[in-house]
């Protein structure tokens, strides 16, 4: 027996875009000359929060900080595992200032902070999502493969390392979206052939995106129960989701796409227990009951 929906994804940490902007270029999408319409960004962010709440999610708020425009992308704050929080170690100095604020929030919320060894690079849930009893973690562009063993030791979860080979899809959460215990949205062309093979074995029922669909960032969706909150929904993807019993809801986040992020990037699930996610844990407790 397996449950149709995910065992996690009902509580999120998000950060309002008061200080959001494209102030530097650290991925293929960012162009410093592009202006962000802050009013539109605020409206899009509020609409996203409303949609998620409507779907049944709780949203916690992280205070925005001036000079840290990417703090809105809370998916990169770290990895949540039960009451444990593993802060990210960012590759780019532009984002390293976010860590202190993230850690302060988690400490105040009562989480135990476990640090990756210094010198390792890993960008949190943006590059690590639980599936099938393992923590799937991307590497190369923004996280280092060498951090995966340390991540496994800290969380106790087996890690499946997947190399990201398309610099436009620079984080795992642009290429992979768990939908349930057996199903996930996948963009295999963004992975090397070894990673694609590993994921093929891990995901029994994949919803495979083609190149164009993946570049619409539709894998960067937030799954709340059976609601899939998506930045875009290509027709065939929507049909398949509906056939599987999901309710795809498009939430426009075009201002955030200017910085290379979408719905999932703007959220960090707080109810994840990486060791309890997947069929290998049998009939143990579930976050969603």
């Amino acid at each position: 027996m397996y449950s149709q929906s995910l065992a996690w994804g009902r509580r999120y940490l998000m950060c309002p875009p008061e200080h959001f902007g494209v102030l530097y270029e650290i991925n293929a999408w960012m162009r410093a000359e592009v202006r962000v319409d802050l009013d539109r960004a605020r409206a899009q962010w509020q609409a996203l929060v409303a949609t998620m709440r409507a779907a049944g999610a709780e949203v916690e708020v992280l205070e925005p900080v001036e000079g840290l425009p990417d703090l809105v992308f809370t998916a990169n704050a770290g990895i949540v595992n039960g009451h444990q929080y593993v802060p990210s170690r960012f590759r780019h100095p532009q984002r390293q200032g976010e860590v202190a604020h993230d850690v302060a929030w988690f400490e105040a919320a009562g989480y135990t902070v476990s640090w990756l060894p210094e010198g390792m690079v890993h960008e949190g849930a943006g590059d690590a999502l639980p599936f099938g009893g393992a923590l799937v973690s991307g590497y190369r562009t923004r996280s280092d493969a060498a951090s995966h063993a340390a991540l496994s030791r800290l969380t106790g979860a087996p890690v499946r390392s997947v190399e990201l080979v398309d610099e436009r899809l620079y984080h795992l959460d642009l290429t992979f979206c768990p939908l349930g215990e057996r199903r996930a949205i996948v963009a295999p062309h963004a992975w090397d052939r070894y990673g694609a093979k590993v994921m093929e074995a891990l995901v029994p029922e994949p919803l495979v995106l083609d190149d164009e669909q993946a570049l619409s960032f539709c894998a960067n969706s937030v799954v709340v129960g059976t609601t899939v909150v998506m930045p875009a929904c290509p027709v065939t993807v929507g049909r398949r989701l509906e056939a599987w019993g999901f309710d795809p809801v498009v939430c426009e986040v075009s201002e955030f796409a200017k910085a290379g992020g979408a719905c999932r990037c703007l959220t960090l699930a707080l109810d994840v227990d990486v060791r309890m996610c997947g069929s290998e844990v049998g009939d143990g407790p579930r976050w969603d009951g």
Partner: peptide, 13 residues
């Protein structure tokens, strides 16, 4: 090299 290098096919790679 260490990690889940067998299951992740990293060793083979």
């Amino acid at each position: 090299i260490e990690g889940h290098i067998v299951d992740s096919l990293i060793l083979a790679k």
